[in-house]
Amino acid sequence: MNIGRHTLIGVPYLWLLLLFLVPFGIIFKISLSDIALAIPPYTPSLDLSEGWPGVRDFLRQLDFENYVFLTEDALYWKAYLSSLKIATISTFLALCVGYPIAYAMARAASEWRPTLMMLVILPFWTSFLIRVYAWIGILSTEGYLNQLLLWLGIITDPLQIMNTPTAVYIGIVYTYLPFMILPIYATLERMDDSLLEAAEDLGCSRLSAFWIITFPLSRSGIIAGCFLVFIPAIGEFVIPSLLGGSGTLMIGKVLWEEFFSNRDWPVASAVAIVLLLILVIPIILFQKNQEKTQEADA
């Protein structure tokens, strides 16, 4: 029994320690070292094989120069701010698009709901890369959208949407929409309709009944949906690099280029550590919201 229990806990525990936690230690260590023209391209400032003198050397040389560099070069803090801005705007847009869909799904006849659910989940199972790729053909200058608008006579010159932040907003809203719809739908579906009937009996208009009852009751779903879009959107790489062009600055792309093009591993690691610190706050808030919802359900 005891051996069985130990393996059961030990194997997944050890796996995650070695392949999840230890790598973070390594990122942190490399973010404190100096870049060098070597393979691997950094000089280790912490050498544990030298034992205690190695640690002492490390502490003596310890400087946060890569982090200082991040604050000095405008590229980095602009990229962080721009990621936050793009993620915030896209989350808001996804909420505006997703809420009416989730609301209508919850209002639909109950025999239709599983089918509607399936239709929302289906794109989520399709390749993320392909769903982003689909928009290149639509948004480019000779793309389908411009062709349609020109043919309709709404515009006379093609619109430049590709390679602008607008294309990134569209891409994020499109790919993450199921994450916004599903939690909101889950709260709306459970809602007690008699509350609405009572409000209407008491003379509420349907619109004000919505704002007084439905909207506040779906709050936990809205919060969950917003975090599920916001958190991955901040570190997004694929969407800005395929749709955003060179004009759109996002930190995931900066990290990628720092690593693959500039081969500056210490700075790439420092970028990653700062990104993590930024993400800790929304992640903790999200966790709190989930716990509160679970308590309310129990």
Binding site: F237, L275, L279
Partner: peptide, 27 residues
């Protein structure tokens, strides 16, 4: 710590997970 390590990868940006694993494999 265990439950933290189960939930954290779900919200971790892919660029960070990728970078950290690569640095592990190299080291």
């Amino acid at each position: 710590l265990f439950s933290g390590m189960i939930y954290a990868p779900l919200v971790m940006p892919e660029v960070i997970t990728g970078l950290s694993l690569l640095l592990l494999f190299i080291s």
